[in-house]
Design a protein around this nucleic acid. Structure first.
Lengths: 133, 133
DNA sequence: ATAATTGCAAACACTTTGCACCTGT
DNA sequence: ACAGGTGCAAAGTGTTTGCAATTAT
């Protein structure tokens, strides 16, 4: 049976409050201050991933795993996500075009995409504006 | 100026010969036998990536970087790739649907996908058949 | 001759783990 | 009481680096 502890509550709150972001352990730790240790954080994240409350993926830009809060209501497991390489923001892609693209890959290329394991990298609108000046 | 050494030649040959695969350093090292050291391999891979002869991406399944030979004729930088989570095979996606999906993301979501940094994970045809029995 | 490359071992960064102590039920 | 959780420090993993020796030009 799982115990409810204040460490776990703080961790899930931070992830929830920042669900438009995805953060690596260091960043989460910074937000945690000294209330939770590194070991506990990693163990909690592992657990949360097993419970499908968060998703872990490796970000090559930061050379670390990042953790994304999965909103159950938003059905994050069944759509693709866009991750901005510049600001780190995460965008949820629910649209017909995405669905039809994936069925095209399934039908015509016989490849079955795992949306949960795929992350589309690039540059978001505001970052592209900043870059242009 | 860059010197031509037998170590580099062996490394690029192995990558070329296995271009339908992507391998991590350990796997490449295994194929190299004792002819090239780990340090030299990593340095060569870094260099080859700068020269756009190979592409590096992190594979979460093996928790390591994998290296993909980029066929210059195939213009790998300008199309998406599909990576099978089961057999590790890599598929090149050149099709209209991919292009129109990416322009949809650019126009309607104002997000500019970096094809070079994105990998689409899933299960390929033959692996899905095996799985079903 | 000399600039580039190599191999070794040590250093690194991030993540995971063993263990004694603490906390929730 | 005791199963589960925590924090520390140590270990683990893949990757990178400093340096002296070696090789290509």
């Amino acid at each position: 049976m799982e115990y409810k502890t204040k460490q776990k509550e703080i961790i899930i709150k931070i992830l929830k409050d920042n669900n438009e972001l995805s953060m690596n352990a260091k960043e989460i730790l910074a937000k945690l201050g000294s209330s939770v240790s590194k070991a506990t954080l990693y163990r909690a994240l592992e657990r949360l991933e097993e419970e499908n409350k968060i998703r872990r993926f490796y970000n090559e830009v930061t050379s670390s795993y990042e953790y994304q809060y999965l909103d159950a209501n938003d059905k994050c497991s069944s759509h693709l996500h866009l991750k901005c390489n510049s600001c780190g923001k995460l965008f949820h892609l629910h649209c017909e075009e995405s669905d039809s693209f994936l069925s095209h890959i399934a039908h015509d290329h016989s490849f079955f995409v795992s949306q949960n394991e795929t992350m589309i990298y690039g540059i978001c609108k505001s970052c592209s504006i900043v870059k242009r000046g």
